[in-house]
């Protein structure tokens, strides 16, 4: 599974998604094809805004997992590092560990969010 993680590093370490130059839509995660313009679209990678807002969330296995609406309208599902959040809480990205492949495997880093003070 190492190549599977490695392939997405750019898009997980930072919130890098796709922007369609034809229709102006933002997509996260990255897409190979614009769902609106399809083959006529022109997608390129773009770094998305650092901040967003909690649209909804759950607490599962002791962690807050939230749907975050980024400031450009795209959405990302990510962990929020906080004691509590609410719908509407403003958050910003942070770089954190998501897990590791046992004691000997690789460490999975990625983007999480924290409330904006």
């Amino acid at each position: 599974m190492v190549p599977l993680f490695w392939r997405k590093i750019k898009y997980r370490y930072d919130v890098v998604g796709s922007y369609c130059e034809k229709c102006g839509s933002y997509y996260y995660p990255k897409r190979e094809l614009c769902p609106k313009c399809r083959r006529k679209g022109k997608l390129r990678d773009e770094r998305f805004p650092d901040e967003g807002r909690v649209l909804s969330y759950t607490i599962v296995n002791g962690k807050i997992i939230a749907m975050i609406g980024l400031n450009n309208g795209a959405r990302t599902l990510a962990e929020v590092c906080a004691e509590k959040v609410e719908i509407g809480t403003r958050v910003k990205k942070v770089f954190r560990r998501y897990g590791e492949d046992g004691d000997e495997g690789i460490i999975y880093y990625g983007t999480k969010f924290v409330p904006v003070c």
Binding site: Y13, E79, C81, V94, F95, R96, R97, Y98, I107, Y109, K112
Partner: peptide, 16 residues
């Protein structure tokens, strides 16, 4: 550090 922080994550935050 938080449960999900280590030398690499803190270095990234400082670097950013």
């Amino acid at each position: 550090p938080d449960l999900d922080e280590d030398t690499a994550t803190m270095a990234v935050e400082a670097g950013r």
